[in-house]
Simulated assay, not measured.
Amino acid sequence: MRKKAGVLVIVLMFIALTVLGDRYLNRSAETNLYSGTIEGTELPVQPELGGRVVELLIQEGQMIKTGDIIAKLDDSQAKISLDIAKSQQIQAQAKLNDLLGGVRAEELRRLEHLVNQAKANLSALEPTLKFEEETLAANQKLYESGALSKQALDAQQNKLDTLKAQYQGAQASADAAQASLDQAQAGFTQPTIQAQKAAVDIAVQSVKTAELGLSKHTIKSPASGQVLYQNVESGQVVNPGTTLATILNPDDLWIKIYIPGAKLGQVKMGGEVSIAADAYPDKSFKGQIQYISTQAEFTPKNVQTKEERTKTVYAVKISITEGKDQLKAGMPADVTLE
């Protein structure tokens, strides 16, 4: 009798375990649980210009804010360019002010003096020129009569030619001086003023360009976050586009999981999920489906078992919407689809 009772107990226990096992397996099959690793968006900090790093103001692990200075490049040449641009702007503006204000009395007097001096030079050369012309005519008659050598006649001709060249130069100087005086007395024309205004505008833009170039030698953080990597050292010469540092954005945390094609219909854009992290076993956090791949791929080897690696799956990116102050990049986590 005892033997039959023992057999009956064993049979009942087997039935109970079978039922519980079926329920457990069915529940596991129905549970939409997937594993992944929490990741964060990494932002490379890259200069637009190249140069030598003269100051590096960050360290790995440091928390920084948007606009904080990451590094400074050698800006000595940029400062020189800015000083030159500013000087050119001052000169252009001063010339425009002169045009708009008219010619000063001192300038008129100076131009009048130049005209008078040029005319005086002409007056001084005229008697000498006349005398040398008469001398050449007399020497020509003497040469024809045989009383003067050809060499002496040529010397007189050269002397007269030199004097004529001096007179013509003096005449040109007098004409130029008179033209400058006439223009000053009449005032500057509107096209001249407009041209100078354009020159001032160009100088202003040159200053702005130089200021922008100088500002680009100070490298600032594009976002708030944590310095994940410091990629260069102070004193190093870098090229444009070189990554100086990498910033991790803690406000943009996400997980990528892989869904079998058979269950893809259960996933919808914007759908909510529950996230559990090993660091917080008694808590769950909310997330939202942000991206669903449209192309199937083989399961990554580090995510599934060896038997399941040959199955095709779809990548699903989930944005973490809750617990960003607790969850950190690199934490393993489980995602339950709701």
Rank of each mutant, 00 (worst) to 15 (best):
Y258T: 09
I275W: 01
V267N: 08
G271Q: 15
A276H: 15
V232I: 15
A276L: 12
L253T: 07
I255E: 00
S224K: 04
I275E: 09
N231Q: 14
L228K: 15
K263G: 05
I275Q: 07
A223R: 06
D251F: 02
K256V: 14
I255S: 06
G265A: 14
D252V: 11
V238W: 02
L264H: 05
G271P: 01
V227E: 06
V237P: 01
N239S: 15
L264C: 04
Q266R: 12
E272I: 13
N239H: 09
V273T: 12
Q266M: 12
V273N: 11
Q236I: 03
A262H: 10
I259C: 07
N249C: 06
N239V: 13
I257Q: 04
I255A: 06
I259R: 08
N239F: 02
V232C: 00
L228W: 07
V267A: 09
W254F: 15
G241Q: 08
T242E: 10
I257P: 03
E272V: 14
Y258K: 00
I259D: 10
P240K: 03
P250T: 13
V273H: 04
T243M: 01
N249M: 10
P250E: 05
D251G: 14
A245S: 13
K268P: 00
L244K: 08
V238E: 12
W254A: 13
V267W: 11
V238D: 08
G261H: 08
I275C: 02
N239W: 04
A245F: 02
I259Y: 09
L228V: 02
A223H: 06
T242Q: 07
Q226K: 15
V267T: 11
G225N: 06
G241W: 01
T246Y: 04
P260R: 07
V267P: 11
S274D: 14
P260L: 11
I247D: 09
S224D: 10
Q226V: 15
L264G: 04
I255H: 07
T242V: 07
E233S: 13
T246D: 07
V273K: 09
P240S: 06
I247P: 08
Q266V: 01
A276F: 11
P240W: 12
I247E: 05
G241V: 04
M269T: 08
G270P: 13
G225A: 06
N231R: 14
K263T: 00
M269Y: 14
Y258M: 02
I275F: 07
Q236F: 05
G225L: 05
K256M: 12
I255F: 10
L248R: 13
P240I: 07
N239I: 09
K256I: 12
A276G: 13
L228C: 01
L244A: 04
G271M: 14
D251Y: 03
V273D: 09
I259G: 11
E233H: 05
I275N: 02
I259M: 12
K263W: 08
D251I: 01
I255W: 09
A276E: 15
Q266G: 05
L248E: 12
G265R: 12
T246N: 00
Y229M: 12
